[in-house]
Write a protein that binds this DNA or RNA. Structure first.
Lengths: 168, 168
DNA sequence: CAGTATTGATTGGCTGGCCAAGGAATGGGT
DNA sequence: ACCCATTCCTTGGCCAGCCAATCAATACTG
């Protein structure tokens, strides 16, 4: 034993998570994924999370802030602050909605649009890197199962209160 | 069309993520998972992330802080601040390591140990909820594929610098 | 038409988490 | 014995993201 003794069962599944091994694996993989994405985004001058907001703006043109909130599933205050920073960086432009003086319209600037290629490349590149050695069938299976999980959790979330008055 | 027009392709995969659909699905599922876990943890007085630290402490007894850092894969400063808060909540106890005056030994208090059952139940419960309708074979397959992804990403992370001097 | 409810957005405060920089204590090399 | 590199931890600053409370503008209802 030349290695300093691990002092306990380090690096393995914590025993308190034995009842949720898949969830733990999901959390681990997603964290690594987010970190790897963060590495790529840093070279573009973005922080993790911001690229998702930019994606919506690239797709939608001028959007109401409430649309962003709903589309990203984030807290309104989170969106406000992210937009303030993105605006200060010159990536985004905000102006009052003439048809509703409460609302704010958001759109990307030219500088913001310039990042699109880099972000798309980052996502493709990370996809290839993270799925290396996994065949197309397994990839599809993974996506299918993750979607099922997301559906289950979305159902639970709706029961838990954040149910927008769509069906109730 | 009674619903307010979506203004664009809301709620679908952002077009900039077409190159990484699995990664996007992974991120979505993991976010929902973390939020669902957060709901359960709030009833225990914990924030998401803290339960993982407690798990290590429950398993290991008194641990050096550096062990925690390595075991959780977090930044040292993150661990320091989390421990300061957990200590102030009375869930954790810190004392200097007599054999190395730089180091700090961390262990749970009785009050901290009392949360173990609740956290285990929360994980089991979330596992069942998130995997509802998914058979044992598919669960195993999901775990296997997620582990592959995590392995790929860990490899990439090591190449990217955070390689602890284990093999080099 | 007046009064109330709902929606849109902001602020403040809190946590998780990162990076960069710094200060102690230990260990290794000459 | 001395100096230097390494290890262990802390601080400060920043961003994502949440909740609670708040204000302004619109919509709804009696």
């Amino acid at each position: 034993m030349t290695t300093a003794e691990p002092a306990c069962t380090a690096d393995q599944l914590p025993s308190a998570a034995r009842g949720g091994p898949v969830g733990m694996t999901l959390a681990r993989a997603a964290r690594a994924h987010r970190i790897a994405m963060g590495r790529r985004l840093r070279e573009l001058g973005l922080y993790p999370g911001q690229e998702l907001m930019m994606m919506v703006l690239w797709d939608c043109g001028a959007v109401r802030q409430s649309e962003l909130i709903h589309s990203l599933g984030l807290d309104p205050s989170t969106v406000t602050k992210m937009l303030q920073r993105l605006e200060q960086c010159g990536l985004v432009l905000r102006r009052p909605d003439p048809s509703d003086r409460r609302a704010v319209l958001v759109e990307t600037t030219e500088e913001g649009r310039a990042l699109r290629g880099g972000v798309e490349r980052a996502w493709s590149d990370l996809e290839e890197s993270s799925l290396a050695g996994i065949g197309p069938d397994d990839r599809a299976e993974l996506a299918r199962l993750l979607d099922l999980v997301a559906d289950n959790l979305r159902e639970e979330a709706e029961e838990a209160g954040d149910c927008p008055p769509l069906n109730c």
